[in-house]
Amino acid sequence: MKNVLYTVQKNQQLTDSVYHMELAGDTSAITAPGQFINIKLDSLYLRRPISVYDCRDGMVSIIYKVVGKGTQLMSRLPVETKLDCLTGLGNGFDTSVSGENPVVIGGGVGVPPMYYLAKKMIAEGKSVTAILGFNTANEIFAAEEFSAIGAKTILATADGSVGVKGFVTDALQGLDYSYFYACGPEPMLKALYNNTRTSGQLSFEERMGCGFGACMGCSCKTKYGNKRICKDGPVLVKEEIIW
């Protein structure tokens, strides 16, 4: 974890409620895909945890959905705004166990962390399939970016407006994969837990106090003992999850 003062380089609207923000500054604390940053906003007391969408030396980017006061404030931040962030939070995904042809599965705002993950595994020489689930066509974002880095990209929409009609689990049917990684709403994660043949890693969300393991605000029980979603997670392995 590091405390970094980032500079907003870009804050671009992708869909009705989803934005892409690029932040310039020290990224050395971000060591794995699936980690998050915790953003301090003027006038709000607690920080806002947002997962890393992409990261390179000196630049971290996030994709966030406007769902409340904090993300609404974020959506209005102009370029050059300084943002006080805690970075490199959470355990992130472990790619060493992925096998040769892993699948990454994102649902809605669970899609962003899968991009940095897919990118890393492609760089490691793996053949990555990305299944991206959305409600409907005009809510889709980032899909082309997955294709651009060489992930075999499958879209699923609940209303069938684009790609496979149904959920990510429908798109997973018949696919050959060595391991799975997932982030999205809890019902999606649970469906994947019940409908995947291999082991996998799932990234969870919880209301957090601090975001770095001090307050015990986001604890959960696992088969491997109590864990803090912010510090010991947000990524849990399939075998340890208790629903």
Binding site: L44, Y45, E206, R207, G209, M216, G217, C218, K221
Partner: peptide, 17 residues
Amino acid sequence: FGNPTPRIAECTSGLIN
């Protein structure tokens, strides 16, 4: 183990835990 989650709620200039 403590209480079920959510355990945290934000307030103006503070939080509830």
